[in-house]
Design a binder for these strands. Sequence first.
DNA 1: CTGGATCCGCTTAGATACTG
DNA 2: CAGTATCTAAGCGGATCCAG
Lengths: 119, 119
Amino acid sequence: METGDHKDCLGVIMPVRDALDVINGKWKLPIIIAISRGHKRFRDIERNIPKITSKVLSKELKDLEAHKLIKRSVFDSQPVSVEYTLTPYADTLNPVIDALFVWGTQHRKTIFGSSEPQG
Amino acid sequence: METGDHKDCLGVIMPVRDALDVINGKWKLPIIIAISRGHKRFRDIERNIPKITSKVLSKELKDLEAHKLIKRSVFDSQPVSVEYTLTPYADTLNPVIDALFVWGTQHRKTIFGSSEPQG
DNA sequence: CTGGATCCGCTTAGATACTG
DNA sequence: CAGTATCTAAGCGGATCCAG
């Protein structure tokens, strides 16, 4: 397979871009993580994601729902409550989240350990 | 560890966000993939990434260099040529890229197979 | 108090063109 | 070939407001 130097590029880039298209932005994965951790309510999710605002969360939630990664269930209680849960499809993202977690953890060590903290 | 329902959230979100901070956006991973495939020159990278523009490529390349993921080497030839290569640190991203590739491939099948094509 | 929508400013991304 | 400049459009983020 690896005969030369300029290997197939598009065949790798395109699926990766399809994936990036879905988890695009700084919020989608954190939201999925928060929900997977048992935070199903809007404010509960909001509180568990540093610096996110209602507006952004609202928008991202809709986006995620359109991608079939989360399910929005409305309960006709008093007052109305809404629960966000992950779909089984979202669970297939676990290897991605795990890889990111591992790399991010290592990266954090690298940047904090070498010269200066970041934020 | 998994005693309850509301599990540690920040401990997962923060490293993931550190990772997302680095590979943020639609271009960084495609660029890394292109370079890893043997495309080292500016125009060569540009041509192998659909829809990227010079400006964005230029900016992303600087970003990636600042994060120590790529190395920019200037050769004093006629005319001056520049080569971008991956650092060993960039290689540690392989599990992430691989996970994204696997998921993206599957996702592509899902969206093309169910109703309508996307891009 | 929950789940948003709206107005507005700032930062980014993208199209096109240009320089060394 | 290897980028920069300029302009515009879109998206992010903050504050505020609204319905139940």
